[in-house]
Design a binder for these strands. Sequence first.
DNA 1: GGAAGTATTTAACATATGATAAATAATTAC
DNA 2: GTAATTATTTATCATATGTTAAATACTTCC
Lengths: 187, 187
Amino acid sequence: MNSLFNFFKGYNSLSKEAEKAIAEISKIVAVKKNTDLQPIGHTCKTIYFINKGVARIYYFKDGTDITECFAFENNIIARVESLFTGKPSRKAIQILEDSEVVAINSTQLFKLYDKYPEIERLFRLIFESAYVDTVNRIESIQFHSAEERYNSLIKEEPNVLKRVPLKYVASYLGITQVSLSRIRGIK
Amino acid sequence: MNSLFNFFKGYNSLSKEAEKAIAEISKIVAVKKNTDLQPIGHTCKTIYFINKGVARIYYFKDGTDITECFAFENNIIARVESLFTGKPSRKAIQILEDSEVVAINSTQLFKLYDKYPEIERLFRLIFESAYVDTVNRIESIQFHSAEERYNSLIKEEPNVLKRVPLKYVASYLGITQVSLSRIRGIK
DNA sequence: GGAAGTATTTAACATATGATAAATAATTAC
DNA sequence: GTAATTATTTATCATATGTTAAATACTTCC
């Protein structure tokens, strides 16, 4: 859990007591490549932290597999559109390499918010930051060409291409795999 | 301020004391059409609530004016990528009709979070909800055609077209004004 | 280590949206 | 109320990305 608590420190330092409370509702899980951590249709009740490995959120749009986002080591991944609404998610979380993740029970976490305002603040800050990333991503999708988006991805996350099949990268960039292949061919 | 406190009730009911604390750091402002509430380059230190009127967030991308979002009556508008990072915003908030807004000083608001966890929770819930909207908007931009996006906009926000110049709607939809005009012409 | 299954690339053609320019329509200001 | 400005539409042409299909390349598994 150490890397999880280190990750937290970047947002809000917790008291030992609060850390203990979070540890009690979390567990470390080893997950095999290509397994779904949480399936489509399931109401999200877990926030995951990636200790080792890669995960993605995906869903089906008209029968084709769409990747919403990736998460690598030392990052959190959750289907917020379900987590924050209590509605079943149309999305799934899939593990892309043999991985080790920390699973935090969100139902119990939200209960801790009453007793530990510092925990509520921590997750407020984490999700505010994720919200900002999402706002910035809209701009990237809407006003950059596929090629520009590909170039900034390899610049900002060069590991993605090494660790994730290109077909998943393509839908993350909002294009078909064929288009991605063409863009890569140009260089 | 009544409509503001009613808006809050949809997220987290506040004690009278907390309401009073928020009232003390807020003021009602009348704003004329086409004025910038906050200019580009300014670090966002105000959260606005629209009592009456319409506002938009916009920025310039390669010299062209891009609308990021609109806000109508009984909604909040803020440049979160500045509010939550403390960095100057590349975006501005503009009023599109003679309007009345409530301006909440965010520096003072964030200070209230320590004394009133209920206020911190309120804004956590407000922004979690806005975050979910943003995640859903990505899907809409990425995997629906311009025509589909236009149709769902007139379905979900029919007022937009009546109250907002089409050129602003076009960039909000991620297309040029000419394309929007063509799409409207088809029907 | 070869067969079967997956992933990636390449090619040819189709189409939605962009860019530019010009025509109308609506608004604003004196 | 007319002129000036601004917003919207229409038309033409250019281009990025989509679609389909087939060819390679790479993995996985018995």
